[in-house]
């Protein structure tokens, strides 16, 4: 299972490295979203600083939808899906591989976005341990839930419109908890301990990784 996962993840990441869709389209788009938020808030410095954690995570969510769509568009082109099924790999391994590749891309993207937030909104990124831990745990949950819905939505060929509708409500708790944890770390929001929010994110990640490992078999085996 782990071997298959590594194979699939390696393949996906190699495709991304060569095609540079993530670097040239998804990351710039996420940065544009950050700029648009500044327009929407009239570049009010205090307000942007206060809202920075939420804006960061909303931008991550938008970018995640794009990454997941991209990750499955790769499979549906040229019958890659059928070949993946024929390869005899463990469905759970395929799931973990695809989710892992998405997670790696999202983490790189978050690095870029964090720099963007620090520069554009002049947030001081203090308490790096909490910030990084939040990113890691939230990304696992996002990638797992996204991969489950990705395979569901792309198989029907209406993924552009269907995936956001399916995915956004499900990952709403990730947005909420990750934003709260970041607020606690940056000292902007109300208060609350970051650890509690991290625990929620952890539960979410565990639930969706388990769901994906269990559900991917039935989902993949039939077109």
């Amino acid at each position: 299972m782990w071997h298959d996962a590594a194979l699939v993840a390696g393949k996906d990441l190699r495709i991304e490295l060569r095609s540079r869709v993530g670097a040239q389209q998804v990351a710039p788009f996420a940065l544009v979203v950050l700029v648009l938020f500044a327009f929407a808030f009239d570049a009010d410095h205090a307000l942007l600083l206060k809202a920075a954690p939420g804006l960061f995570w909303v931008a991550v969510l938008f970018a995640a939808v794009l990454s997941i769509q991209r990750s499955f568009a790769v499979e549906s082109a040229d019958g890659g899906r059928d070949r993946l099924r024929l390869s005899g790999m463990d469905p759970a391994g395929i799931f973990l591989g695809k989710a892992g590749a998405v997670a790696v891309q999202l983490l790189v993207l978050q690095l870029v976005l964090a720099a963007g937030v620090a520069i554009l909104y002049s947030s001081r990124l203090g308490d790096a341990a909490v910030l990084v831990a939040t990113c890691l745990v939230a990304t696992v949950g996002l990638a797992a839930a996204g991969t489950i819905y990705g395979v569901v939505a792309t198989a029907v060929g209406a993924s552009e419109t269907l995936l956001p509708l399916l995915l956004m409500p499900v990952v709403a708790p990730v947005l909420l908890c990750a934003t709260k944890a970041w607020q606690a770390a940056l000292g902007t929001g109300a208060t609350g301990d970051a650890l509690g929010w991290l625990r929620f994110l952890g539960v979410f990640a565990v639930v969706y990784v388990a769901a994906g490992v269990l559900a991917f078999g039935p989902l993949v085996e039939e077109g």
Partner: peptide, 24 residues
């Protein structure tokens, strides 16, 4: 199959949403 998975994933989300919003 797909809709069954979607329904279960959605249903599993409910307690998490509720708890997180409650705490929020």
């Amino acid at each position: 199959k797909r809709s069954a998975v979607v329904a279960l994933v959605a249903f599993a989300d409910v307690p998490i949403v509720h708890m997180s919003v409650l705490w929020w």
